[in-house]
Amino acid sequence: MTYKTLLVHVDQSSHAAARIKIAAKIAIAEDAHLIGSAMTGVSRYLYQDGVVFIESVITSLRAQANLALDQFDAIARQMGVNSFERRLVDDDAGGGLSLQARYSDLVILSQTDPDERTDDLITDLPEYVMLNSARPVLALPYAGNFDRLGSNVLIAWDGSMEATRAVTNALPILKKAKNVTVALFNTSKQFDVHGEQPGADIGLYLARHGVKIDVEQRKTDLDIGNALLSLAADKGSDLLVMGGYGHTRFREILLGGVTLSILRTMTIPVLMSH
């Protein structure tokens, strides 16, 4: 598997430039086509306050989105991305990205920054796109500098379908990584998932793909989310790969405990698949 189409969320947040640069680096490394997509949010106004109001709001929203796309163009050109395009989409971020993601190999977006909340911001964007696109999401923390990504990778392995998808979707990155650690927690409580040597099966699978790994079994009384972030800090990991658990009920997002914990408190980029 390789990444041939990447989708990055483009907006006017203070984190947009760093997000676009990371997406550009991945596109260059994978020789992939990079799509920068800015959502106008026009769909929120289609049935409000009459045609005159709609036209004025649409014009303003599209102008703001195009300014964000201008920054995307400039960064992609400056960094030397071979193939890229800008897209202006008249939808909200969650719906627009989820639909476009289905025709992409990887979606790059950011954790919600509580200091940049506005009335129109979707506060659960990473989880919404993950649950509604069937594609892997690379979520970047709003705090920190992540110029180095994918050199020292930590995989959260529990034998689930979600974790399996995440590992498979991360293969292009894992093959290039210098260090990959597969972490298993409290395996004695998962007797129906792991074999006689927990981690051996996924280790062999990855080895056949040319990925060199270390397997670590840990026992912990902490919640698994905090235990994973603690292990990532100890190892100096620059990427966490894990399954994402949850579902949507109407617009409400219902997440599993570990998924919710990681998405709320992430300290390193997280590649997550549902």
Results as ranks from 00 to 15, higher is better:
residue 136 P to I: 08
residue 168 T to N: 11
residue 143 A to D: 10
residue 152 N to M: 12
residue 162 E to G: 00
residue 167 V to R: 08
residue 159 G to F: 06
residue 166 A to N: 11
residue 158 D to F: 09
residue 171 L to R: 09
residue 137 V to W: 05
residue 159 G to S: 06
residue 143 A to L: 09
residue 149 L to Y: 10
residue 146 F to D: 02
residue 142 Y to K: 04
residue 164 T to R: 00
residue 154 L to M: 10
residue 149 L to S: 11
residue 151 S to K: 08
residue 155 I to T: 01
residue 150 G to C: 08
residue 140 L to G: 00
residue 136 P to Q: 11
residue 156 A to R: 04
residue 165 R to M: 11
residue 153 V to S: 10
residue 156 A to I: 07
residue 157 W to L: 10
residue 143 A to I: 10
residue 147 D to V: 06
residue 161 M to V: 08
residue 151 S to I: 14
residue 139 A to H: 01
residue 164 T to P: 03
residue 168 T to M: 05
residue 139 A to S: 10
residue 144 G to F: 10
residue 168 T to C: 04
residue 140 L to E: 00
residue 138 L to H: 01
residue 170 A to G: 06
residue 157 W to N: 00
residue 158 D to E: 13
residue 140 L to T: 01
residue 138 L to E: 14
residue 149 L to C: 11
residue 153 V to Q: 03
residue 169 N to H: 13
residue 161 M to Q: 14
residue 155 I to P: 00
residue 170 A to K: 09
residue 170 A to T: 09
residue 163 A to T: 01
residue 157 W to H: 00
residue 153 V to E: 00
residue 137 V to S: 02
residue 171 L to S: 07
residue 163 A to P: 14
residue 170 A to S: 08
residue 149 L to I: 15
residue 154 L to A: 13
residue 145 N to Y: 07
residue 157 W to S: 03
residue 153 V to K: 06
residue 153 V to R: 03
residue 163 A to G: 14
residue 138 L to Y: 01
residue 154 L to Y: 06
residue 147 D to H: 02
residue 159 G to T: 02
residue 150 G to D: 02
residue 167 V to F: 05
residue 157 W to D: 05
residue 162 E to Q: 11
residue 142 Y to W: 06
residue 140 L to A: 04
residue 171 L to H: 11
residue 138 L to C: 01
residue 139 A to P: 05
residue 137 V to D: 01
residue 147 D to L: 07
residue 171 L to T: 04
residue 139 A to R: 14
residue 155 I to E: 02
residue 150 G to K: 14
residue 164 T to V: 05
residue 171 L to F: 06
residue 167 V to W: 07
residue 136 P to S: 02
residue 155 I to Y: 11
residue 162 E to F: 03
residue 141 P to C: 09
residue 141 P to F: 14
residue 149 L to R: 12
residue 143 A to H: 09
residue 145 N to G: 00
residue 162 E to R: 03
residue 151 S to F: 12
residue 168 T to K: 06
residue 145 N to T: 13
residue 149 L to T: 06
residue 161 M to K: 15
residue 155 I to S: 12
residue 138 L to M: 07
residue 156 A to H: 12
residue 140 L to V: 10
residue 150 G to N: 12
residue 138 L to V: 11
residue 149 L to G: 04
residue 164 T to G: 01
residue 142 Y to I: 07
residue 169 N to C: 05
residue 150 G to H: 07
residue 145 N to H: 13
residue 145 N to I: 11
residue 155 I to Q: 00
residue 139 A to G: 09
residue 155 I to F: 11
residue 169 N to Q: 05
residue 170 A to L: 10
residue 139 A to Q: 02
residue 148 R to I: 11
residue 151 S to Q: 15
residue 157 W to F: 12
residue 161 M to P: 08
residue 171 L to N: 00
residue 161 M to W: 04
residue 160 S to L: 06
residue 162 E to S: 13
residue 165 R to I: 03
residue 166 A to H: 08
residue 166 A to K: 04
residue 144 G to I: 06
residue 164 T to N: 10
residue 154 L to K: 15
residue 164 T to E: 00
residue 143 A to T: 12
residue 139 A to L: 10
residue 145 N to A: 04
residue 143 A to M: 04
residue 141 P to N: 07
residue 153 V to G: 01
residue 139 A to W: 07
residue 137 V to H: 03
residue 161 M to E: 15
residue 142 Y to A: 05
residue 170 A to R: 14
residue 168 T to P: 01
residue 163 A to M: 08
residue 145 N to L: 08
residue 159 G to V: 08
residue 153 V to Y: 15
residue 148 R to F: 05
residue 154 L to R: 05
residue 140 L to I: 15
residue 141 P to L: 08
